[in-house]
């Protein structure tokens, strides 16, 4: 009896002391930012990603837990540049957590920290899903990961000052390893320079910009719109004049359009992970780029 009582008491004590070792709760819109928070925050942070690598980050299903997680979050990190415009504003409104609203320390928009490509001079509906803030898929240039990582590390220290030394040490360690990897990747990827590739959606521009690759065309006639037969025929004629090496699509995209184009043109299809978790071996940010480059190089040779 006494033993049970003692165990119970210990449990209660444990529960009471929980807040003392509470971790910083990070809500990421996409897996790449949850992975970055895990690299920089270590055991002082619990991360959660609203979408998985198998889901299109443009869309999301409303689940009660998403609202609860935003409500309890200390920091929200998202790509931004209107990538999540279809669901994040609703989620923020419904959660009503002032700490993570835009403009507050708990809100970090990754795309705003780097130089964005494809910023349109004017936007109207006829252009498809064009983002006024430029192309939002910024994480596929690893140099951006370093820039955003610095900002995220500072933000973590700001929100959890007790751990600032810990965050600084982890950040330095991460950036050092990232720099080494970056040099290795750049050497590895040299043969990819100038290679022409057809993509499904314009979510590879930052990767191609970094490696000097060329977008030979997209399967979507306009961003976000499904492929039409007429567009595929036009693309086929273009590719007959100036050929491409492969057709690339992300793990979360349906590959039917890519396969159809491949049948028409004889160009092979390549699936890339796009983000952390998009392939069995792409479990963190380092392996994401390792797998992406390995697949591109294998397909190019």
């Amino acid at each position: 009896m006494q033993k049970i009582f003692k165990t119970g008491l210990t449990l209660v004590m444990l529960l009471l002391t929980m807040p003392a070792m509470a971790r910083l709760s990070v809500f990421a819109c996409e897996p790449e930012w949850a992975a970055l928070a895990a690299e920089l925050g270590g055991e002082r942070v619990t991360g959660y990603s609203a979408t998985t690598a198998k889901q299109d980050p443009h869309h999301i299903e409303a689940r009660p837990s998403l609202i609860a997680r935003v409500r309890n979050a200390d920091l929200l990190i998202c790509s931004g540049a209107e990538l999540e415009i279809g669901w994040l504003p609703l989620l923020l409104r419904q959660a009503g957590n002032a700490a993570v609203m835009p403009g507050r320390a708990g809100y970090l928009e990754a795309a705003s920290l780097v130089q964005r490509l494809e910023i349109p001079t004017s936007v109207d509906r006829s252009m498809g899903d064009v983002h006024a803030g430029g192309n939002p898929h910024v994480h596929l240039d690893p140099r951006h990961i370093a820039t955003i990582g610095k900002a995220l590390g500072q933000r973590l220290a700001e929100l959890d000052p007790a751990g600032s030394a810990y965050y600084q040490q982890r950040q330095q360690d991460f950036l050092r390893r990232w720099q080494q990897a970056l040099e290795r990747w750049q050497k590895q990827a040299a043969p990819l320079k100038g290679m022409r590739v057809v993509t499904h959606h314009r979510d590879w521009v930052y990767l191609f910009n970094w490696l000097g690759m060329v977008t030979a065309g997209t399967l979507e006639p306009r961003p976000g719109l499904p492929t039409t037969a007429g567009h595929l025929v036009n693309l086929k004629q273009e590719l007959a004049r100036s050929p491409a090496k492969m057709i690339v699509h992300a793990a979360y995209q349906d590959d039917r359009a890519a396969q159809r184009m491949s049948q028409l043109s004889g160009i092979p299809v390549l699936e890339l992970p796009y983000t952390v978790g998009g392939a069995a071996k792409a479990g963190d940010l380092f392996s994401l780029f390792d797998v992406t480059l390995a697949r591109l190089l294998a397909a190019a040779s």
Partner: peptide, 22 residues
């Protein structure tokens, strides 16, 4: 047909978004 968010609109119409109600 020319709306990039067509899928979302159609699905939203069918299964609704009861959780986004305020």
């Amino acid at each position: 047909a020319s709306n990039p968010h067509a899928g979302e609109h159609l699905k939203g119409l069918l299964i609704g978004q009861i959780l986004w109600v305020n």
